[in-house]
C-alpha cells in the first residue's frame, strides 16, 4: 500500500464521510496513483481512506470503492531513533494485531544513551507500525496506528 502525504484539518473527520467528498477523494487518489491516504484531525485522530477496500461506513451505496477507518496514532514522545524492540530484548513488546491497553509501552525512542517509551493512550488493536527500525522520528510523529 502506498501512503499519501498526511494533511492536517479541522472538522475533516466528519466532512470525509460526506459521499460527495468521498467521491472527490477517490478521484484524486486514482489520478495520483495512490491507493490510501491518512488525514490527521486536530484532536489527533487519523482518518484512513483506502481505495478499493470495500466500504465500512453507512454510505455504502454511493461510494462502493472506498473504506474510511479511523485509526488512533501513537506518537513519538521525543525526537530520536525509533526502536521497535528494546535493546536488551529479542522480541517486541507488542505484535501487530495484538490488543493493547492504555499506558502500555509498545516501542522506544533512543535519544543518546537514553530510551523513551512509546505508549498507548487508548485501548485497541495494534494495526501497524509506520516507522522503520532505527529511523529518525520527530516529536509527535505517528509511530504506530491503533484500531480502537
Amino acid at each position: 500500500m502506498i501512503k499519501g502525504p498526511k494533511r492536517k484539518s479541522g472538522s475533516i473527520a466528519e466532512q470525509v464521510l460526506d459521499p460527495v467528498i468521498l467521491g472527490k477523494i477517490a478521484l484524486w487518489l486514482d489520478e495520483a496513483g495512490v491507493n490510501s491516504i491518512e488525514i490527521e484531525t486536530k484532536d489527533g485522530r487519523l482518518v484512513r481512506i483506502v481505495a478499493g477496500a470495500g466500504v465500512s461506513t453507512d454510505n455504502t451505496d454511493s461510494n462502493p470503492d472506498l473504506s474510511v477507518s479511523p485509526a488512533m496514532p501513537v506518537k513519538a514522545p521525543i525526537a530520536g531513533h525509533f526502536l521497535p524492540v528494546h535493546p536488551a530484548r529479542d522480541r517486541a513488546e507488542a505484535t501487530i494485531g495484538a490488543a493493547v491497553i492504555p499506558e502500555q509501552i509498545i516501542g522506544f525512542v533512543k535519544i543518546g544513551p537514553l530510551v523513551m517509551p512509546v505508549r498507548v493512550e487508548e485501548s485497541g488493536r495494534l494495526e501497524g507500525c509506520c516507522i522503520e527500525p532505527e529511523a529518525l522520528v520527530g516529536y509527535g510523529d505517528t509511530v504506530f496506528l491503533i484500531e480502537p
Partner: peptide, 14 residues
Amino acid sequence: MPPGGFGAMPPEAA
C-alpha cells in the same frame, strides 16, 4: 519522571 518513565541503553548494547 516523565509519564511511563525512561531508561538507559544497556551497557551490552551501548
